[in-house]
Amino acid sequence: MSVLRPLDKLPKLNTATILLVSTEDALLQQLADSMLREDCASQLNVHLAKSLPLPSNVTRPRIDLIVFVVNLHSKYSLQNVEESLRHVDASFFLGKVCFLATGAGQESRCSIHHNTVVTLAHTYRSPLLFCDLKMEDFRVTMAQRLVRMLQICAGHTPGISALSLLSLLQSPESPSLEDL
């Protein structure tokens, strides 16, 4: 069982690679397309995977950012993500992992509670983003955001590293919004 390690390969020049992991194929494909359409000075590689571990017969460049996409409407995608998390080395969680939750807007169809993903992200000390990937405009803005994060994680932005970004994005336990 191969475990993903962040710095086990040398980076290719001017290249940044992101790995999107989720059971939702269609959404990932669309997100990947939006990301590739973004205007970016570096060359982007987008890898899509249903789950980890990745097959070891393919050579791939160094992975700079892993995004786990959880669909709040299906418990299966959460389980899948939790399984895949075991195949990621601990040093990846120093800012090179991010969680993305989709479908939070329609509360009636959410089978996973909002707080579950929040605790998951908190346990792994990684940022959690919300986005409704089915809507085109929201997807495009999220793609822009991911591209910026990717550039930072790949070291293409001088002066800021993945770890410093992580410390900026860190949020302590937030109070339950039901109290409002």
Partner: peptide, 8 residues
């Protein structure tokens, strides 16, 4: 706010 995408 958590669900806002920053543009809308």
């Amino acid at each position: 706010l958590p669900l806002w995408d920053g543009l809308c």
